[in-house]
C-alpha cells in the first residue's frame, strides 16, 4: 500500500519522498507491489523502489531507507518531513510512526487493508484523535491475511490524495476521521473519531 501511495505522490510532483521498507522483494509481494516486478525478485526492496520512483519523475527527490525505522530514527525522520504516511504491516510500526508524527506536530495518515477492505485515518496532532487514541495497545499481529492488490492501490492512492490535499491546502482533508471502504459490498463509511482523554501519546498536546 505504501507503494501506490509513494508512486502517486511522486507522479504528483511532491518535492521529496522518503520511503522506508526493509527486506527483499519476494513473490508474495507481486499481487500488490506496484513499485516492484518479477525482474527485481530477491533484491532489496527500498533500493529498487527508489530507482523506480526516480524514473517516474526527475523533479522529485527520492530517498530510500532499507529498513523499518526504530523509534529514534522515526523521530528524526519526522523532523525532516511535512507529513507521514503509515502503511507498514504491524500495529507496532504504525503506532511508532504515529508517535513520531504527534511529537513532531506533523499530519499523519494511516492506511491499511484486509482482503477487499481498506481503512484510512487522518490525524492532526493535538487537535484530532491519533492512532494511539484508538488502539492504546497494538491489536494482535496477523501474519497471514488475504490481500487483493486492487484494494492496496485504491487505499494507497486515497492516502496520497489526502496528503496532497493537506500539503496544498486544497479541499477538506479527513481530519479526525476514519474512512473505510468495504470492497465486498462497495460501501464507504466515514466515522468521526474521538480523542481519548488519557491517551499516552497525544493527550498532553
Amino acid at each position: 500500500m505504501g507503494g501506490p501511495a509513494a508512486l502517486m505522490l511522486t507522479m504528483g510532483g511532491i518535492g521529496r519522498v522518503i520511503i522506508a521498507h526493509g527486506g527483499d522483494m519476494i513473490s508474495p509481494d507481486l499481487n500488490r507491489q506496484v513499485l516492484g516486478s518479477e525482474r527485481v525478485l530477491g533484491r532489496p526492496r527500498a533500493e529498487d523502489f527508489g530507482d523506480y520512483l526516480r524514473s517516474m519523475n526527475q523533479f522529485v527527490e527520492v530517498e530510500a531507507i532499507g529498513h523499518e525505522p526504530n523509534a529514534t530514527e522515526a523521530a528524526e525522520l519526522a523532523e525532516r518531513c511535512d507529513i507521514i504516511l503509515s502503511c507498514p504491516p504491524t500495529f507496532e510500526e504504525r503506532l511508532r510512526l504515529n508517535r513520531a508524527a504527534v511529537e513532531a506536530g506533523i499530519p499523519f495518515i494511516d492506511a491499511a487493508q484486509w482482503g477487499m477492505t481498506g481503512t484510512l485515518i487522518v490525524v492532526k496532532p493535538g487537535e484530532t484523535a491519533c492512532l494511539e487514541c484508538l488502539y492504546p495497545e497494538p491489536p494482535p499481529f496477523e501474519e497471514f491475511f488475504p490481500v487483493v492488490g486492487a484494494i492496496s492501490a485504491a487505499t494507497g492512492s486515497l492516502a496520497a490524495l489526502e496528503a496532497i490535499k493537506i500539503l496544498s491546502g486544497t479541499g477538506d482533508p479527513l481530519w479526525g476521521k476514519m474512512l473505510t471502504y468495504d470492497g465486498y459490498r462497495g460501501k464507504v463509511t466515514t466515522v468521526q473519531l474521538q480523542r481519548r482523554a488519557l491517551c499516552a501519546c497525544c493527550s498532553s498536546r
Binding site: 504491516p89 491499511a112 487493508q113 484486509w114
Partner: peptide, 10 residues
C-alpha cells in the same frame, strides 16, 4: 452500529 475490526495490512 458500525464495527470495524483492526486492520494493519500493508
Amino acid at each position: 452500529l458500525i464495527l470495524i475490526a483492526p486492520v494493519a495490512g500493508g
